[in-house]
Design a protein around this nucleic acid. Structure first.
Lengths: 115, 115
DNA sequence: AAAATAGTCAACCGTTCGGTTTACGGTTTG
DNA sequence: CAAACCGTAAACCGAACGGTTGACTATTTT
């Protein structure tokens, strides 16, 4: 298992815990966007949306390139990968690779009957 | 893509955004635990830990069975699966099945050169 | 019956959150 | 240069968060 910095993970999950921020990430998945473009879809002040972008940036999910008066944002998925790595630990609770597991258990049963 | 209720996802990611709560889930991954057992590892009042359990329960990550004076908690991974499903959308940004993607692009290039 | 145990509930406290408004600092553009 | 534009910063607001203590309810245990 890859140990992940808990503080970093706190920040990532917190950033993901808001619908607006998740929607912004979806926007960024289709290409880079200015802060204004990210803000446009929401009934919210630009300053408000800007704060959301900062939360995403602080969590390391978004990087920003200042280009003249506009700030270009792009997705940085590395921290999302860390979050998914954390979650993947629990896959065994819902994934039915009980197929493989059952196979393994049957093999052990066979061993037990042999020995 | 499986559309997931945003409010539910808010609750799940918020529940995961705290180190103590994530650690509690890890405990529950090894088997059911009472609230007291969940609380034991942390320098925190029982009431405080109990609140964390309630957050996990409200997010649907934990179910509780009251058994006499003790409350037995067990992991319910379904909502974790939803969170992972949401994250899996972004796998293409870090997974190198750029192999497959590159193949596709090369095929399109070939088409372009033909036409 | 009395005492110990498991846990919640309610009130409270300081901090953070999500949002606003207003003011401001750099760019472009006219 | 002046005006419009893009975005941040700061101050503020009510609500939620993470945590505490103390009182309380049930259940076990003795």
């Amino acid at each position: 298992m890859v140990e992940i910095d808990p503080v970093r993970l706190d920040a990532v999950f917190h950033a993901l815990s808001d619908t607006t921020r998740r929607a912004m990430l979806r926007q960024l998945a289709t290409g880079e966007r200015s802060v204004g473009e990210l803000a446009a879809p929401y009934a919210m002040s630009l300053a408000g949306a800007s704060k959301h972008v900062k939360v995403l940036e602080a969590a390391g999910l978004v990087r920003r390139e200042v280009r003249g008066r506009t700030h270009l944002c792009r997705l940085d998925a590395a921290r999302l990968a860390e979050a998914e790595a954390w979650l993947s630990y629990y896959e065994r609770f819902w994934t039915r690779h009980l197929d493989a597991l059952e196979g393994l258990l049957r093999a052990e049963d066979a061993e037990g009957e042999k020995g």
